[in-house]
Nucleic acid binder design. Structure first.
Lengths: 125, 125
DNA sequence: AGTGCTGGTATCCAATGGATACTAGAGCTT
DNA sequence: AAGCTCTAGTATCCATTGGATACCAGCACT
């Protein structure tokens, strides 16, 4: 790692790009669940909770496209589709979990800051 | 409750919440820049590049609300507003930079996966 | 008098998010 | 035999959001 700040625009774009994929409300939850093992479509839907079919499909397609999950179709009746994290997916999970850990430790502070800010905004009105 | 897996829905929500704040396309870039030191509004706008005034304002307000940056107004003419990372902001920067590092190391792999997926999709048509 | 600088709003339109309804195809129920 | 169910999705529609553009105040400079 370099002591110089490598915050060149190009690098930051890449970071932003990945973070947009990862930070779209459902991706983390889905990847988190898949981190525990392969899962079927509806299994994911129920355990994640609150996600619509369309959004789960969209999320999974995106993850598949970027090489984070594999999609395996069993042409049985009724159909069965397994989703599983790839190697790349597991590697991604690591820094994401670090951020997740931070989030768990600091939600209280963020909430407090929000309450302060909102109270000040109300007072100003 | 004594979970072996810490992927409880409640925790994941918190993670998702933070990631949504962090992953909204501009936040990382702005926080990254501010990590190098305090900056003025238009200074940020030009160095980040490609961000509209409205989005920069929105992003900064959100960050301020959540306690990641401070906003200091100097009532001079023309006005001058400095934005600076708080302690909390710097702490956030750490796991975010870890994820950023991962992103920098792996963009090639993601791009390759995308190209593969898109080629397969085209072939299927 | 006009122009520029600053850090913003206001307005409008396109893109996205998400709820709901629908599909196929076989099995089970009645 | 008619209808319901279970699965993994599309299709459709509408609300929310993202983002480009235009406008604003207030003073200094020419």
């Amino acid at each position: 790692m370099k002591p110089r700040h490598m915050h060149l625009t190009e690098d930051c774009r890449a970071v932003s790009d990945i973070l947009q994929r990862v930070g779209d409300k459902w991706t983390v939850l889905v990847v988190g669940k898949l981190g525990e093992g392969p899962m079927r479509f509806n299994e994911l839907r129920t355990t994640v909770g609150g996600i619509s079919q369309k959004m789960l499909t969209t999320t999974l397609r995106g993850l598949e496209r970027d090489g984070f999950v594999t999609r395996t179709v069993y042409p049985t009746i009724p159909p069965r589709v397994d989703y599983e994290l790839t190697e790349l997916g597991f590697e991604l999970l690591e820094p994401v979990n670090a951020l997740g850990e931070w989030a768990r430790m600091n939600t209280a502070r963020v909430k407090a800051a929000r309450a302060r800010f909102d109270a000040a905004a109300d007072a100003a009105r």
